[in-house]
């Protein structure tokens, strides 16, 4: 029984992991673009970006999932996105907004003097970004990013609202067969995976500890 349940939960966890990894793959770069928008010198662009970020960060992810999946059909009679795709799109947008604020905080915390030192040494903006500030930004954003990653793993449980069969859904389906423990057993998968993430991030923090 334990083996059957484990196999079926693993299948659900596969969906969880796929959502987690694909979200990161797209949200990490998209967040950087959004952070540039929210720091732009073009005032309308800056305000538009910040408004979008405010709406996305200020409203429940659960509602966003429902709106992205059902919204096109309810509002415009359009065909729906596949369930997993709708969930993924929502997560990418939502997490890109969170990441953008972390990037912005990281970038703005770099002293002006670092940019100016690069400039007077004849570096291009690109060189200054990649050779001077990037690693310093990364060092500063690693701890908050670690938090976001772990939150993301747990947030994936929300997608069962539109019937994406992630691990909690799989665990809950056993309740109908009279088995309660598989639902609680899902916690083990989360704990192990988040444990690995924690180790990865503390290793990264250590790696970047060589400078201050």
């Amino acid at each position: 029984m334990l083996l059957t349940v484990t196999m079926s939960l693993l299948e659900g966890f596969g969906t969880t992991l796929k959502l987690f990894l694909l979200t990161l793959l797209f949200a990490l770069p998209l967040g950087l673009i959004i952070s540039f928008g929210s720091m732009s010198r073009i005032t309308p662009l800056r305000w538009m970006t910040r408004t979008v970020v405010w709406i996305i960060r200020g409203s429940p992810l659960l509602l966003q999932i429902l709106v992205v999946f059902y919204g096109p059909g309810l509002l415009f009679d359009l065909p729906l996105l596949p369930r997993f795709t709708a969930a993924l799109v929502t997560f990418i947008i939502n997490y890109a907004c969170y990441f953008s604020e972390i990037y912005r905080g990281g970038i703005q915390s770099i002293p002006r003097g670092q940019y100016e030192a690069g400039q007077v040494l004849g570096m291009t903006k690109r060189q200054i970004f990649f050779k001077v500030t990037l690693l310093q930004v990364i060092k500063r954003i690693v701890p908050p990013m670690g938090n976001e990653f772990i939150t993301l793993v747990k947030d994936t449980a929300l997608v069962r609202v539109i019937s994406v069969y992630e691990i909690i859904w799989m665990g809950e389906s056993y309740i109908k067969k009279g088995l309660i423990w598989p639902l609680f057993y899902t916690a083990v998968f989360y704990l192990v995976f988040n444990g690995l993430l924690t180790i990865l991030f503390s290793w990264l923090e250590k790696k970047l500890d060589y400078f201050k």
């Binding site: 429902l66 999946f69 059902y70 096109p72 059909g73 309810l74 065909p79 729906l80 369930r83 069962r160 609202v161 539109i162 019937s163 069969y165 859904w169 389906s173």
Partner: peptide
């Protein structure tokens, strides 16, 4: 067959999910 969230059944139908 699609296992749905029972609360959403009307939305699922209306949106042709």
């Amino acid at each position: 067959f699609v296992e749905i969230n029972w609360d959403n059944k009307a939305m699922e139908l209306e949106t042709k999910a």
